[in-house]
Simulated assay, not measured.
Amino acid sequence: MKISSCFDAGSIVVDSMEHAGDIRLQVRHDSNSEFAQWFYFRLQGAAGQACQMRFLNAAQCAYPKGWVDYQAVASYDRQHWFRVPTQFDGQVLTIQHTPEEDSIYYAYFEPYSWERHLQLIGQAQSSPRCKVRDLGNTLDGRDLNLLVIGDEAPGKRKVWLTARQHPGETMAEWFVEGTLSRLLDEQDALAGALLDKATFYVVPNMNPDGSCRGNLRTNAAGTNLNREWANPTMEKSPEVWLVREAMREIGVDLYLDAHGDEALPYNFVAGSEGNPGYNARREALENSFKAAWLVHNPDFQDTYGYERDHFGEANMTLATNHIADYFDCLAYTIEMPFKDNANRPSALYGWNGERSKQLGASVLHPIAAVIDQLR
């Protein structure tokens, strides 16, 4: 038997593996950081054997509540992912699975590879609706790209969508892929109507270095990008600094930031109600946005989510809070589950890339509901 993780987003520490029934692992920490939750590895030579893979440091990971009722994902071809039996006893996370083939991959969530990211950009720019803009480089020297969808004409609303500030939250880029699939479809009437009124600015991957390194929360420097928006630097958080400068140059009327939540098995949004600049206009926009999404996609809900911040007590280093007050605009963090959507569960797949894409495609409906009231 052999376990390896020397590939895009791969991450695991092997303690010992004397036989298939006793494989002992550790979840690796992010680069230069204490965060640990993401894993992605390949197991070879165990076809037909009952494997027991134990993650010995699960209780010491960043979000131990994320292991409760969690099922890991597996794939033989890295295209089709399915859930496998997983248990957490409060200390150790255990995957029990009998592979059918000699090569199989296990991961925390369905990965979104750097190669697929580059293909997404290439496919997007093949549309006459899309232009690719280079914002600069990450600490590891990777490109940070902005997709501009639609004409940049005077008077049009400016809608921004970012994803994967936390690189292990791969459902966020699947979400973006779904949004782009509609925006770039010239036969989609809703997309066409929105592009008559708005230009979309999309950063599909805010954290390329963390994505390739197999990090959950941080970039190459060990920085949590979603705590940098009040004062980013080119030394620690160039990704935020570059995107924020582009926003200030272009303007923002609506901002959506796609994420994944480890513990809550629901799709929900978090707004800026704790901001010192929160007002009745922004509250009305938030309510209209949520109401429209509830109508158009049953995978979205507004019963479960984060506890609302009290007015004036928001963390202003978060992207949603910073952008909402700086531009006095509607801003939402979109959260999707690592587990499953408890309201519409799927035992075989759980929440996955395809369902994230469908949710991303459906976000055009709530955007359309508020587009005329943004300014």
Rank of each mutant, 00 (worst) to 15 (best):
A36Y: 03
N279W: 09
F55V: 15
T320H: 08
F268N: 12
G178Y: 09
S356M: 06
T86I: 04
H117W: 11
Y349A: 07
M1Y: 02
W38K: 00
L118S: 03
T303H: 08
E262D: 12
F39I: 02
P232V: 00
D185R: 13
I323M: 04
R78S: 04
F200Y: 07
L348C: 03
Y112G: 01
C61S: 15
R28T: 12
F7A: 00
A153S: 09
E115I: 11
A50M: 02
H19M: 00
R182T: 06
W174H: 11
L43A: 10
R164P: 06
A172G: 12
S103T: 13
D340I: 00
K65H: 07
H259K: 04
G155D: 12
G168E: 03
Y40R: 11
E115C: 12
N224E: 09
N279E: 06
A319P: 01
W174I: 05
K156L: 14
R244Y: 13
D340W: 00
D140R: 06
V68F: 03
E100M: 13
I334E: 15
L43N: 01
S103Q: 15
L225C: 01
N137F: 01
S211F: 02
L180E: 07
D188M: 00
N219L: 11
L180Y: 04
F109W: 02
S33R: 02
M336I: 01
A284R: 14
M247N: 06
F35M: 10
L318H: 12
P167Q: 04
S356K: 05
R244H: 13
A74M: 07
E173R: 09
G168K: 06
N279P: 09
R83Y: 10
D77I: 12
L242C: 05
N341P: 07
N145R: 15
I3G: 13
L56H: 13
L56F: 10
S103H: 15
A292H: 04
D302V: 15
I104Y: 01
A263D: 13
Q125H: 06
F41S: 10
P265C: 03
T98Q: 11
G21P: 02
G136N: 00
L294P: 11
P345S: 13
S5R: 08
R217D: 00
Q91C: 08
S272D: 14
F82W: 04
G305E: 07
K197T: 13
R227T: 10
A221V: 07
D340L: 01
R227N: 12
Y266C: 00
Y349H: 09
L195D: 00
H310A: 13
R28S: 05
I121P: 11
A74R: 01
T199V: 14
R227S: 08
Y108A: 06
N137M: 06
Y349V: 00
E335S: 04
F327S: 07
Q125R: 04
L294W: 10
I323C: 05
W114D: 02
Q373N: 09
G168H: 02
S11P: 03
L183D: 14
N275C: 13
Q52E: 15
L264S: 06
G251N: 12
G260W: 00
V252D: 08
Q71M: 13
E169N: 07
A258W: 10
I334A: 15
N205E: 06
V176R: 08
L183A: 15
E262F: 11
V202N: 01
D209M: 02
V27F: 00
R54E: 15
E34G: 05
A263P: 11
Q125Y: 03
E100P: 13
A331G: 14
N231T: 07
C6R: 13
K2M: 10
Y278M: 03
